[in-house]
């Protein structure tokens, strides 16, 4: 419970929070402007997004640099460490709920709204009056709704690239755990190797996911517009892919930090936080593989 409250470290004032607030604002303001841009727009929105995004990168760099410096200077005690851990755990929980919204949408669309449109349950009248030709099904036949929005499409075969991706991510979870054990045992060389492998596996995943997207768009005509099938497919895998990308970048940074000797056997919260995050991304993928690809 962290009750042996000897010294709590209250950090000094910092300009990073206000910088963060400003660059976040610029990014979304630019994005909103860009989304509403009329033809012949000056590109103001895009410029602002770019400034904001670069600002976000600089902000993360600067903020983490100051935290790492303070950490290396030994300012953070056990209690601060616990606060950080709790922060990361609850952050991951919030991410779980974010994905939960999209999984919930998938279940609802698949099990209720599409069958209802096909005349199931209390959808009888909608079906009769609006789309009485529609034979509801999920996947290639009817997953894009009664008006076949986006045109005929094919689905991604689960036992090809997606299976490979599953294996890649599962392996990467193992390698990052091996790296963690090695770190606790103090074998820095081994840490670098296994963490490095994890980063490469993450990169492989992103690469093969990108291939899958290209195949979907070019050959299967499966796009974001392919009715609710396309929407759930791309939103779920897309947000997951984004998280894998972030996770891979974070792992790479941790790799550099191991190289720089920032961690020792006891103190390596940065490593652990990223490892947790990686496992989370992995678990989400298992859900995706099951519910988006296989079933």
């Amino acid at each position: 419970m962290g009750q042996q409250q000897d010294i709590y470290y209250v950090p000094s004032r910092s300009h990073w929070p206000i910088v963060a607030a400003v660059v976040l604002f610029l990014t979304v303001f630019g994005a909103a402007h860009w989304l509403n841009a009329e033809p012949g727009d000056s590109g103001f929105g895009k410029t602002v997004i770019t400034i904001g995004a670069i600002g976000i990168l600089c902000m993360f760099f600067g903020w983490f640099r100051s935290v790492i410096r303070e950490s290396l200077a030994g300012r953070y005690n056990h209690q601060v460490d616990t606060s950080f851990r709790m922060g990361m755990m609850w952050f991951i929980f919030s991410e779980v709920m974010f994905f939960g919204a999209f999984f919930g949408a998938l279940f609802y669309l698949r099990n209720y709204s599409v069958p209802w449109l096909g005349g199931d349950g209390h959808g009888v009248l909608t079906h009769q009056f609006l789309w009485n030709h529609y034979a509801a099904s999920w996947g290639a036949g009817g997953g894009n709704g009664p008006e076949h929005v986006g045109g005929t499409f094919g689905t991604v075969e689960p036992w090809g690239l997606p299976l490979l991706n599953t294996l890649i991510l599962l392996t990467s979870s193992v390698t990052v755990t091996i790296a963690h054990h090695a770190l606790r045992a103090g074998h820095r060389g081994k840490v670098l190797i296994f963490l490095g492998v994890t980063v490469l596996l993450g990169a492989c995943f992103i690469f093969s996911q990108a291939n899958e997207y290209m195949e979907a768009y070019r050959e299967l005509n499966l796009t974001l517009h392919s009715g609710v099938y396309g929407a759930t497919f791309f939103m779920l895998t897309g947000f997951h892919g984004l998280h894998v990308t972030l996770g891979t970048i974070m792992l790479a940074i941790i790799w550099l930090r191991v190289l720089a000797g920032h961690f020792n056997k006891e103190h390596h919260f940065g490593f652990e936080a990223v490892a947790w995050y990686w496992h989370f991304v992995d678990v989400v993928w298992l859900g995706l593989f099951m519910f988006v690809y296989v079933l």
């Binding site: 209802w116 449109l117 009817g142 894009n144 709704g145 929005v149 759930t232």
Partner: peptide
């Protein structure tokens, strides 16, 4: 999802594409 329905052509809440405003 509202954002993508409006600006990126998804159909979460559009019955024609299999979606449902009630979702």
């Amino acid at each position: 999802m509202l954002l993508t329905d409006k600006y990126f052509g998804t159909n979460f809440f559009n019955a024609a594409g299999g979606g449902d405003p009630v979702l």
